[in-house]
Amino acid sequence: MQNYASEDRYIKELDPKKHEIALSTEDLHVFYGTSEAIHGVSLPFERFKITALIGASGSGKSTYLRSLNRMNDNIEGTRVDGKIMYRDIDINGKGVNVYEMRKHIGMVFQRPNPFSKSIYDNITFAPKRNGIKNKKVLDELVETTLKQAALWDQVKDQLDQSALALSGGQQQRLCIARAIAMKPDILLLDEPASALDPISTSTVEDTLLSLKDHYTIIIVTHNMQQAGRISDYTAFFHLGNVLEYDITSNVFQRPKIQATEDYVSGRFG
């Protein structure tokens, strides 16, 4: 397996006194069967900031992101070693209520995946299952989340229509609204704009920037302009390792690692 000596990487330390850490991993390894896809990644994620995960296709960004809320549990033969610290708990440990944890660490996927239900039901489905029955509260929830996701104006008159009739960009924003309706702490997004056209992409980006005040966001993207535009921190993934982690401007303008420079200047990947 590929291993890098410590001088080959640069992982910025975040001083816990100055930066509030919402989530962090310690020496995280992920295995698909016997093949190791993530080789020990340790990263902090600061609260109310956007952290971008960049790197070539197949470098392990999705695998890493999906282990943060243990979505990989559902793939047979997957094993995740190491710690994922959230509120002083190792949520990768035994005895953690995964379902409860996922309410606080929500996720938006690469392909929009709204339920084939109405727009209204898409958002209220999970809150209802969690005991919110009051119609007024639910109505309000739908309105605020759709506004936060910049979708309210377009769909407010068709809330009872099927979500599948929306355009791809609208569906993705509905998925974001659906995720934040659970009032999570942390929002994980896996290339949320990769299946969208440029206009929808920029709407989604605006949505994310406006969400930053209330959510800690971790976003996978292979679009470097996008990472540069919206993120505060960037982690560069290469063959299952993080080679560089720093504030975004440093990663793009003054990378400390050769491989990072090659990648961000487009020489490979």
Binding site: N69, M71, N74, Y99, E100, M101, R102, K103, G106, M107, F109, R111, N113, P114, F115, S116, K117, F125, A126, R129, N130, C175, R178, A179, M182
Partner: peptide, 27 residues
């Protein structure tokens, strides 16, 4: 039914059983 529908339910903190019963079966 596509696996992405299951992931959508699970990512909202629903159990697999709830997801299957309330999302996958209706579809």
């Amino acid at each position: 039914i596509s696996g992405s529908q299951r992931e959508a339910g699970l990512a909202l903190g629903l159990s697999k059983w709830e997801t299957v019963l309330k999302i996958i079966i209706p579809e």
